[in-house]
């Protein structure tokens, strides 16, 4: 009996260790790929997260704008989906927390050091994305303007990475391919040409 218990304990320890380490890209890719058919088969739902931002507008401050006058209650499933994401993220950072700092490629680490970013303990750089930082010019631009561009741009484009790049491309929709290409164009311009100037503020 003792042997069996030890075996089970060891097995569980190994499993927890495996789960706590950062997951490889292919595991995440498989999970994301399977979300597409899971939502379709569970209830004919199309994967798309930025729609929640619109539903939030429609639910809280429609302000007689035609774009927000629709039956948002029919889309409540997506709020549940987001609620699940938050709970999953909490579990991942508590029960399955990775004790080690985020590993960053040396080239990026060297560049970030010149902007005073040296703390890799969180998913986001604490020296950049924190309450204290919010009240600096650099932090305000990144957190407030950045968020605004994400919300404005994703709705203008008719979807975000999930709706266009995953769901749209999975359904071979060419407008989604165009949107995805321009997501990347915007990202490359910001990360390489504009962001270094903001980070130097």
């Amino acid at each position: 009996m003792i042997k069996v218990t030890t075996f089970v304990d060891n097995y569980q320890t190994i499993n927890m260790e495996l789960l706590s380490k950062p997951w490889p890209w292919w595991v995440a890719g498989i999970i994301i790929g399977l979300i597409v058919p899971a939502l379709l088969i569970l209830g004919n739902k199309h994967f798309g997260l930025s729609a929640n931002l619109r539903h939030a507008c429609a639910a809280c401050f429609p302000a007689n704008v035609k774009f927000f006058k629709y039956e948002w209650r029919k889309e409540v499933w997506n709020f549940f989906f987001v609620g699940g994401i938050i709970v999953g993220a909490i579990i991942a950072t508590t029960v399955l927390a990775n004790p080690e700092p985020v590993k960053v490629v040396p080239e990026l680490a060297a560049e970030l050091q010149t902007y005073g970013i040296t703390d890799y303990s969180g998913m986001v750089p604490n020296q950049l994305i924190s309450w204290e930082s919010l009240f600096s010019l650099r932090g305000f631009i990144m957190l407030v303007l950045g968020g605004f561009l994400v919300g404005f741009g994703s709705r203008y484009a008719g979807g975000c990475t999930s709706g266009h790049s995953i769901m749209g491309l999975s359904d071979l929709q060419w407008p989604s391919l165009i949107a995805t290409i321009f997501f990347m164009v915007g990202g490359f311009i910001m990360a390489n040409l504009i962001l270094p100037h903001i980070l130097m503020l």
């Binding site: 994400v150 741009g153 990475t161 321009f182 990347m184 490359f188």
Partner: peptide, 18 residues
């Protein structure tokens, strides 16, 4: 247009809506 604007925000915040 929207795609490019979204991309600018994505690279800044390091996050898309999800």
């Amino acid at each position: 247009f929207g795609g490019t604007i979204f991309g600018l925000g994505w690279a800044m915040t390091g996050a898309c809506p999800g």
